[in-house]
Design a protein around this nucleic acid. Structure first.
Lengths: 116, 116
DNA sequence: CTGCATCCCAGACGATACTG
DNA sequence: CAGTATCGTCTGGGATGCAG
């Protein structure tokens, strides 16, 4: 097996590396919501049924730090902040798209109820 | 947003559901290793540089419970156990394949050293 | 050989309160 | 409006030891 080192952390598989970047509950759903146009913090917050400010803020910050997203701050009062997908982020979209499709397929196969 | 309920747990996105099934450090790499032929516990263990018996056992068990893998026990002494991918498991392979490709691409973009 | 039991830790995530 | 701070909980994962 190969072996990748980044930030003093060792990864043993490419899948492990990808998930360390865009895994977790919110990162891919966030990129997906931003794939076509920028959105502001509150828009993103309202697009999830439940997400704490903390997790939204933390997830966005990490995506910005890893260059999947860019942050634009407008010096208005009250401030307006917009998040946009970057070129790097766009390269993740096809993967997220197929993961989503597969997700719906799995949900179907597993006979899971979708609540209205 | 839709909303899925399975085992008294609520999922809000298809991605979240997929990752609950095949996410984590080992599940996709395990399915990948089993895509073409069955392997036994010890073979799988040796194919990872480091993995505890506990995590290998736990990951395999969950994949079997969720029908991505099937387990065959041979009543020999000492026992031999083989794991095979199922039809359901095979449907995950294309996704894992593209995630892997994307992983290598990301590792490249990020300029990460691959250790020999 | 296979794999469970136990103990432990770090990190993910939630809830609430507070600020520029 | 867009966060940060703090605290608490739960799970993923590692280490070790034992068992059929």
């Amino acid at each position: 097996m190969p072996k990748f080192i980044s930030n003093n952390k060792v990864y043993y598989t490419p899948v492990e590396y990808v998930l360390s970047k865009v895994g977790g509950t919110y990162k891919m759903p966030l990129l997906w919501r931003l794939k076509d146009q920028g959105k502001r913090f509150s828009e993103l917050k309202n697009s999830f049924e439940r997400i704490s400010d903390r997790m939204l803020s933390k997830s966005l910050k990490e995506l910005v730090d890893d260059q999947f997203l860019a942050k634009k701050v407008f010096a208005e009062i009250p401030v307006r902040v917009e998040y946009h997908i970057t070129e790097k982020g766009k390269r993740a979209i096809p993967i997220i798209s197929s993961l989503r499709d597969y997700g719906f397929q799995l949900i179907n196969e597993d006979g899971i109820q979708i609540e209205p």
